[in-house]
Structure formats: structure tokens, C-alpha cells
Simulated scan of single mutants.
Amino acid sequence: MNDHVADRPPGSGALGRRGFLTATAIAAAGAALGAAEGPARAASRINRSSSAGAFTVPGEEVRHTRTWMAWPDSTTIWRGKLGGVQANIALIAKTIAKYEPVVMCANPASASKARSMCGPTVTVITSIAVDDCWMRDTGPVFRTNGAGGLDAVGLNFNGWGNKQTHYRDELVAEKIAAHVGVPITYADLVAEGGAIEQDGAGTLMATRSSIINNNRNPGMSQSQIEAAMRTAYGASKVIWFDGVYGQDITDDHVDATSRFLAPGRALVQMPMASDNDAYAKDARQQYQILSTSTSAGGAPMAVTKLQGPDYYKIRSSSPDFVAAYVNYYVCNGAVISSHFGDTSADAAAKATLVRLFPGRTVVQLNTDYLGAGGGGIHCVTQQQPAP
């Protein structure tokens, strides 16, 4: 993730996706449990006789059949912040449901609460068990073939490098694919959906820190990992950024800093000029690399800057807070983003998104509990494109 301000006053809330390194008891337990089974189980499910063929992952802006989400219910992970996180998840689901169907995966014990908080416009199912709410990372990445076909690819989720338990979440991708009734192929690498951004026309972007990392893909070279990414996504080019190693649970997912708007067009959230921590440097590098890159089709990349907020003006004082406007979700007819309490920056970000997404309604939500947990709206959603 990006834009962390190191000298923020310490928070006392949940196990944030940045703050995991300081919560040694839970982090160590999660890593130990995950290491015992996670990679072995994931490896056993990798389908190396891929039939990807003409299937590709489309851009997020294509029409969706539905959005998939997951209902959090773990007090071990969220501690006293669980209620606030659930309220954020419900708000996001109800907002998206105004534009397209939303299916919420909930454990049986918490399904009634999910239904009560999400309301009748959101479909809650109990057949797909979950550990946490980060559907972008645990869910299947759907692909289309341009001829009415739909399938899915699984990225072998292993708890962000075995930093969190994931016995249920590592099975979410295949269970959703089965629920939809489409085949799933497992990629020849371990990654998460938030770690790879696609333009739908052959170009991917990602951080080395998140994917070329021994906690996910030990012994694999960049060229091997890149080949696996291109095969899984039906792409032909990867734009790499260095990223930030070991400072958050995701090892710096690209979708909190840079996004594709369309083939040959990208958006980067920029830090304040006075910010000079690792995430600020990472964002500036991402902008510089994209500005000198070309798309898979050979066109120069047109890159737009979106100014991030001043962390001293936002509502949250959590040191793990991720104030990423670019962690928005594009759904049918709308763009769902966040506001953080820096009123001028919030308004400017909305104006930028309105300009960049003509014909779509831009909605900003207060998702501060998720932000304090190290994520945002894109992190907790996964689109199912119309075939």
C-alpha cells in the first residue's frame, strides 16, 4: 500500500494490514499455521496444464454480471474494530447494489447479521466460507474470450506470504467458480488480485516486492513469474515497479497507488511534496516508470496524477491508515471511492474521477475502518464480468 506517514501517533485498534509486523503474537501464530499447510495445499491445486487459450482478464470498466464480496467476522483479526469494519463492508455492498447485483459470502454463524446490516438489495450466501473480507485477493479472477465464454483463474492465495491464516480463504476462488458454474485454472505462481492491475488489452502492472518475493514464489525468477502472470491473464507485457518490501502485509499492492483507466492510460496517486517515506518514494517511481512506458500495443502511456490527501488533515490517526483514492471500484454506471476528511483533497479527487470516468456516477464513502485496517474499496470487491 502507499502513502504511509511513519510519524503518525500509534493507534490502538485492529490488526492492520500494515501494522501486522508489530503485532507479533497474532502475526507469528498466523504465519506458523499458514506455513504448515497453506503453500502445500495451494501447490497441490495448481493446474499446470492450462487451457487459457484466448481467455483474457478484461478491464474493470467492462459490464459486470455481479460483484463478489466477503463478510468479516473474526475478532482475532479485527478485535474491537470488527463492528466498524462490518459497517464499512455493508455500506460498500449497499452502495454497489444500486448499480449491479452484489453477492456476499458469509459464514453461517454471521449470515443473519450480514443480512441485517446489508439489507435486502444484497444477496448473502453461506455456502462459501471465508476467513476475512479481502475478496480482491482471495476471489477468482474472471476471464472472458470475446465469444460469450467465461472462466476463472486462481492465484493460489497463501495469506499474503503466510502472514495470516487462510484455510477458508484459499478455497474461495474455486468455490465461487463452482457456484457460478465455470472452470477454474490455477496460475503457476502465488499472488493476489490486488497485486496485479490489468488494462484488458495485454498490459499488466505490478510491484516486485509483492510477487517476486520468497514468501510467495521462492526460487522463481522474474522471467518465470512474468511468464506465469502473462499466461494467467492472457497478457503480453508486464510493467514492473520495485515496490516496498516488508512494511505491510501485502508487500505493497499496486492497486493502492496505480490503476489502468483504459489501454494506454493510467492513473497514479501522488504523495504530498513533503512526504518522503518509502511509500511516497514508491509512488513517485511508479509515476516515472509509467510515464516512460508503452502499452502492449506499443502506444505511449498517458499518465494522470491524482493528488493524495494530507495525512495531518484526515479523520483517522491510525499509523496503518491507507488513504488511497485510487483504490476505487468501477461498477456498472458508477465509480465507488472513499473520502478521508481532508475536504479540499477529497473534493479534488472526486472532481478528477468525474473527469476521468464520464458517464459514470462518482460516489465517495467513509471507509475509515477499512483504511485503518490497511485497505479500501477495491480490496474488498471482485467483479464478475459479463461474458
Rank of each mutant, 00 (worst) to 15 (best):
S344I: 11
L267P: 03
N217F: 10
C331M: 02
E37L: 13
N215E: 13
I96S: 02
F20V: 15
A299P: 01
A109G: 12
T343H: 13
G38S: 15
Y245L: 13
S317Q: 14
L189N: 04
G84S: 11
A40N: 06
H253F: 09
P358C: 08
A283S: 08
V303H: 00
D368L: 14
T126H: 06
R355A: 15
G219S: 07
L91H: 11
Q382A: 12
T95H: 04
C118N: 03
A23H: 15
G13Y: 12
V326E: 13
V102Y: 05
H253Q: 04
K237E: 02
T367V: 14
C379Q: 07
I377F: 08
T56K: 15
S291M: 01
P101Q: 04
Y325V: 09
T126G: 09
Q224W: 04
H4Y: 11
N332I: 12
L261H: 07
A302K: 14
W71Y: 01
Q307I: 07
D242L: 02
I239S: 01
T304S: 00
Q247G: 07
I239H: 00
A25W: 10
G148K: 04
L82R: 03
E37N: 12
V85S: 01
A70G: 04
R216K: 06
C331K: 00
G376D: 14
S51C: 06
E100F: 05
D275V: 06
G374Q: 13
G374D: 12
G11Y: 05
E226F: 02
A386R: 13
W78P: 08
M1T: 14
V354R: 14
G84F: 00
D169Y: 06
T144K: 12
T381Y: 08
R63N: 09
V362E: 03
C379S: 09
V5R: 15
G193N: 05
D151M: 02
A152R: 05
G11Q: 11
A36V: 06
V153S: 01
Q198P: 03
Q86K: 04
C379R: 09
N107C: 06
S258T: 13
G376I: 09
K163F: 04
F357V: 10
G119A: 10
I176T: 00
S116H: 08
I314M: 03
E100I: 02
